[in-house]
């Protein structure tokens, strides 16, 4: 407080009483802020920073069965990992499949956008369909993979049953047990289960666009595609680009869907890097190798996500 402020108080004592009251206020406020900030900070420190540092340290260690302890082995895990990625069919397949999940996830966003637009234009039963599309996002992934798996069951499943009923027996197959269809079936599942979440976000963003734009478009006589590319896409681009970046990075952590639907098989046809890392920890207790792969794919993922981010920033967006 500046010295001339003292003149606004009737006496010197009054001034000190006021300062004391402000201190009290500051302390309570400070306490509140400290408590509010402490929790996320501690959470980040323990579950973010600490785990990441621990993963990095683990990546330079191996488990020695003679001592039962983690021992420092330098870059051994990294050398082994790069050798496996180069020669081991499992990792080659895992990397290839994981990269394929990037366009699949982006396709899910694109489909979610199309559905959001269709529902936005108040097609009959729009609200009902919005709930239907969002349903897979609400239910536990274990339950929906089970439902999907039952549907594709080779002997009892509804898909083969329907093919039978319409006389298309030649297309019947063990969808999740055929190397040619296992991965595609997982892609279909991920799109089906992934549309709902993106759809809700895009619907919310669509509803914030002033309706005048669409009315002007109608008066100009533009069709669906022109409306999509010249009105909706530029206005929704900040939301869309965020979803594209999240979908790209999400490809590197996909494992649960694969594990529950095919367990990575037949052989290695549908495995992913996420699943192989999980196996290293859970089935082989090899924390060192899993951590090394984790660090390697974090770096690769970062580069890919950064490139996608750079690309998304090349497009013009519109302010409204």
């Amino acid at each position: 407080m500046k010295s001339h402020d003292i003149g606004t108080f009737r006496s010197f004592f009054e001034y000190w009483e006021r300062v004391d009251a402000m201190k009290g206020l500051l302390t309570k406020k400070g306490l509140f802020i400290a408590v509010m900030l402490a929790w996320p900070l501690i959470h980040y420190a323990v579950f973010g920073l600490y785990l990441q540092v621990q993963t990095l340290l683990y990546s330079f260690q191996s488990w020695n069965p003679l001592t039962g302890r983690q021992t420092w082995t330098g870059f051994y895990n990294y050398i082994t990992a790069f050798r496996s990625m180069n020669s081991d069919g499992v990792w080659t397949s895992a990397i290839f499949n994981t990269v394929l999940f990037i366009p699949v996830n982006i396709l899910a966003v694109a489909l979610a956008l199309v559905i959001a637009i269709l529902l936005y234009h108040k097609v009959p039963l729009a609200r009902f369909y919005r709930i239907v599309y969002f349903f897979p996002a609400l239910i536990s992934i274990v339950v929906i993979t089970m439902v999907f798996s039952f549907a594709l069951n080779p002997t009892q499943g509804i898909v083969n049953g329907l093919l039978d009923a319409v006389g298309l027996e030649q297309f019947k197959r063990a969808w999740l047990g055929d190397p040619q269809t296992a991965l595609i079936s997982i892609f279909v599942f991920c799109i089906w289960a992934g549309i709902g979440g993106s759809n809700v976000i895009l619907t919310g963003a669509l509803q914030r666009i002033p309706h005048d734009y669409f009315e002007v478009g109608k008066l100009e006589g533009i069709g669906f595609w022109k409306e999509l590319f010249y009105i909706i896409m530029p206005l929704l681009w900040p939301t869309l680009s965020t979803l594209i970046i999240v979908s790209t990075s999400g490809a590197f952590s996909i494992f649960l869907q694969v594990m529950l639907l095919t367990n990575g098989g037949p052989f290695t046809s549908s495995t992913t890097v996420g699943l192989e890392m999980y196996r290293l920890v859970i089935e082989k207790n090899d924390y060192g190798m899993a951590s090394a792969y984790g660090i390697i794919f974090t770096v690769i993922g970062f580069v890919i996500v950064w490139c996608v981010k750079w690309l998304t920033e090349r497009f013009d967006t519109a302010e409204y």
């Binding site: 069951n153 080779p154 002997t155 063990a174 047990g177 055929d178 095919t262």
Partner: peptide, 16 residues
């Protein structure tokens, strides 16, 4: 093996 065995988990195969 039963056709489609490749797609089954342990409980499904036991059910068959």
């Amino acid at each position: 093996f039963l056709d489609g065995s490749l797609a089954l988990n342990h409980t499904e195969s036991q059910m068959e």
